[in-house]
Structures are given as C-alpha cells and as structure tokens.
Amino acid sequence: MALELSGYRVSVAGNGMEALEILLQQPHDMVLTDLWMPNMDGAELVRLLRLNPATAAMPIVLMTASCPPQLRDSVAVDAFMTKPFEFEPLLKLLASLRRAPPMQPASNDALHSPGLAM
C-alpha cells in the first residue's frame, strides 16, 4: 500500500463497524475513511468516534466521490478528500493533520477503511 511505502503504519478495516472496533481496541493517530461503507457508513463512524473521549480529538479525513452539502456541513471531520484524488495532496494533508511531530515510526499510524485505492 502506498501509505506504508511513505512511512505510515496502516490498519485496514472492511467496514465501518470493524473500523470502530479496531479504533476502540488500539490507539491510532488519525483515521482515513470512506463515507459510503457497509454495516456503518463513515458519517456514523465519525459521530461515534467524536462521542468517545478516547477518540474524540483524533484527526479524521473523510473520502467520498459524492457528499450531499447538508451531510458535509453536519459531519465533524478535519478534512474531506474528493475521489478520485492524487496521492501527493493526500500525503500533504495527512502530514498537516498530525497532532505532534513523529517520535518513532509508530506515530504515523493511520486507519484506512474501504475506498482508498492506490
């Protein structure tokens, strides 16, 4: 995966429910998720992450090919990426969202849920 080649450790989830389980079991530095996923969509995943004190401040990037304006205004994410997108702007965005400078490779953890094809 291209993010791993760029130095990120990546956890992959098959759907929104699986992503939530992973994030609640082990800390991650940020989340890169699709809006449209099975079992739980990205908007619901974001809502549940923001309600949990352990994950509330985690940077979240929501990827989508289409997002109704009213949904875009109501989802509490740090950034949107419109698909398709180029890899370099994604890397710049992820770097800008890091809360602290990297101390070791583990600080580059990102969770990727379906929708990122590189």
Rank of each mutant, 00 (worst) to 15 (best):
P38D: 10
S96G: 13
L48Q: 15
P114V: 08
L94M: 13
W36N: 13
P102W: 08
P84R: 13
S107C: 15
L97A: 05
V31Y: 03
G14Y: 02
S96A: 14
V77Y: 00
A110F: 03
P59Y: 05
E86W: 01
A100M: 15
R72Y: 06
A43Q: 07
E21P: 01
V10L: 08
M40G: 05
S96D: 10
F85P: 01
E18S: 03
P105S: 07
L20Y: 03
A65H: 11
S6P: 00
L90F: 12
E44N: 08
L93Y: 07
Q70D: 15
L111N: 06
K92Q: 14
V12R: 14
M17Q: 12
A54Q: 14
M1S: 13
A19G: 10
L116K: 00
L51R: 13
S107Y: 11
T33G: 00
L91C: 12
A43Y: 02
Y8V: 05
S113M: 01
D29W: 03
E44T: 15
L94P: 05
P53H: 07
L5A: 15
P59A: 10
Y8D: 03
A43N: 05
R98M: 15
S66R: 09
L93A: 06
P89C: 13
L32Y: 02
L35P: 07
E18Q: 14
T64K: 09
M30W: 06
N39A: 15
A57K: 13
P27R: 03
R99D: 04
D41F: 02
E18N: 08
V77E: 05
S113Y: 03
A106N: 04
A13K: 10
S113H: 02
P102E: 10
E88S: 14
D78C: 10
M40W: 11
H112F: 06
L3T: 13
Q25W: 03
V77M: 07
L3A: 12
Y8L: 10
T64Q: 09
T64E: 05
V10K: 05
E86Y: 05
D41H: 06
L116G: 02
M37W: 04
L45H: 02
T55I: 04
N52P: 04
P101V: 06
P38A: 12
I22H: 08
D41R: 00
M63F: 01
M103P: 01
R99G: 09
Y8N: 05
M63R: 04
R72I: 01
L48V: 11
A13M: 09
L5Q: 13
M103T: 14
A54I: 01
A117T: 12
Q104V: 07
A65P: 06
C67E: 12
Q104K: 12
P68G: 04
L49Y: 00
A110L: 12
A43I: 04
L93C: 11
S6I: 00
A95L: 13
E18Y: 00
F80R: 03
G14C: 02
R50W: 01
G115K: 11
S6M: 13
D41S: 02
W36C: 07
R98A: 14
A2V: 08
M1V: 09
P68L: 14
D29M: 10
I60M: 09
